[in-house]
Design a protein around this nucleic acid. Structure first.
Length: 189
DNA sequence: ATACCGATTAACT
DNA sequence: GTTAATCGGTATA
């Protein structure tokens, strides 16, 4: 069952990041349907989070969609190369987001392989997951309740003991906030 | 205008 | 372990 607006409009971005583990992200892009089990996420907690692009209310052309309503895609280019897919949460004007950091492809493996360039290539990083799903900067601002990108609960139960929680990756610039336990991943099963 | 850095990855030594 | 790839944001002039 597809996640509805009320899931994304919740105010607890860390809880959403955790609850997205085991959900299934679907894309219908360039005529192909690809889906993947979400295995890793990170929460970015808006204006108070030094690791967030929206820290202190920063608002630029790049991060404008972080300020959209929950259930919107925020896609930006990192290191000039990688397209990183985020799920915006909370309400309009509150720039919370969850970074998709890893998936296990369930449907459309051949299409994902083609996009990644070789069969069986990894999809366990934020850049590789977005690439396999076909998500790119042009999908920034896409409504996750539309027909291009959506997330579904397909009844896969995740044992809480299989979830690891720890500091986020690559945010050393964020000072003390770099140590916050905002990274969630499935480590077993 | 110039300079530096980043929510990364793959291909090296 | 190191490094190249490559571009928007931010700071400085």
């Amino acid at each position: 069952m597809r996640l509805d607006r009320s899931f994304y409009e919740r105010t607890d971005v860390m809880g959403i990041a955790r609850d997205l583990l085991g959900k299934v992200v679907h894309t219908r892009i360039d005529g192909a349907h690809v889906s993947g089990l979400i295995t890793e996420t990170e929460a970015y907690a808006g204006v108070d989070d030094r690791a967030s692009h929206a820290f202190a209310g920063r608002r630029t052309e790049r991060n404008a969609s972080m300020y959209a309503r929950g259930g919107t895609a925020y896609v930006y280019i990192c290191y000039g190369i990688h397209h990183l897919f985020n799920i915006v949460t909370h309400s309009v004007g509150v720039p919370h987001a969850v970074l998709l950091r890893g998936v296990r492809i369930l449907e459309g493996q051949a299409e994902a392989d083609g996009r990644r360039g070789r069969p069986g290539a990894r999809t366990d990083g934020p850049g590789t997951a977005a690439q396999a799903l076909g998500i790119r900067r042009s999908h920034d601002g896409t409504d996750l309740l539309g027909r291009r990108i959506w997330v579904a609960d397909e009844g896969l139960a995740i044992d809480p003991r299989s979830i690891a929680i720890g500091p986020r990756i690559g945010v050393d610039y964020a000072g003390p906030d770099a140590q916050l336990p905002y990274r969630f991943r499935i480590v077993r099963q």
